[in-house]
Design a protein around this nucleic acid. Sequence first.
DNA 1: TATTGTTATACTCTATAACTATA
DNA 2: TATAGTTATAGAGTATAACAATA
Lengths: 145, 145
Amino acid sequence: MADGGANRGESSPLDELLGYQLRRASSAVMADFAQGLARVELKPSEATVLLLIENQPHATQSEIGRALGIKRANMAPLVASLEKRQLVERAPVDGRSQGLTLTELGAEAAREARGAVEANEVKFFGRLSLPQREQLATLLAAVRG
Amino acid sequence: MADGGANRGESSPLDELLGYQLRRASSAVMADFAQGLARVELKPSEATVLLLIENQPHATQSEIGRALGIKRANMAPLVASLEKRQLVERAPVDGRSQGLTLTELGAEAAREARGAVEANEVKFFGRLSLPQREQLATLLAAVRG
DNA sequence: TATTGTTATACTCTATAACTATA
DNA sequence: TATAGTTATAGAGTATAACAATA
């Protein structure tokens, strides 16, 4: 790693800060997740969109974006790319909205994405006991308010 | 917010994923932190660098970068900008390393950065009890391994 | 008037590669 | 050989502003 990895050899005033620890933990988990997805040529944002469409077929891209905290302006090129790769299909809902569904290829990609998600969860949270995982979920929800 | 904010109205399969919850919590905290720093015209990465230099004067930028998980290649323009703004001074340690210290202006910026950090901590973690905060710190450390 | 989707654009953070110079 | 610092460059995510079409 040489650079960029987590340094744990020296204490720093940031160690006391939960916001900082939260960011570092999130970065570590996300970097591994991105690496796990690289094999399938999906970015994390694309993978989460696929999983959400799988779970809520015919949702519009605005709805998906809202659920994921991704702005409309950023959803447009993201979905356009998924459609171009024939992972997602659009079907008009009304004159301005289009419902999104997975193609067969998209469903396969979603399965692979879920595999990457689960490997990532096991790798980072498998060390925790079930009560610890529940506690962490509770605390994270409380932080988000 | 209209877009981009956290949607909590609908359940999704991602709600079960600790990695996803971790990322969303981190994003929320970081967005608020960045906003709090905007008043001082500091980015989060710059603020953390200032705080670390304050705590470890004469540390080299490689050392600071290692402690923060920022690569040398990314530290270079960051520190150059802080130096240009006269927040940081460099003093040669040996022929290839330079120790970093805060100027008076930099010390003042660090104080303001610390204020933003503490407001951010209170806003998001003040809701938690002390044992809960300790538990969260323990769990995040365990996640990072 | 509000919402959907879109384009253009900019900023932050991160990543690799390649180079100089010093140890 | 390894390390410090630099430059160039690319990718991922996010942000705002503005627009057309539709509700």
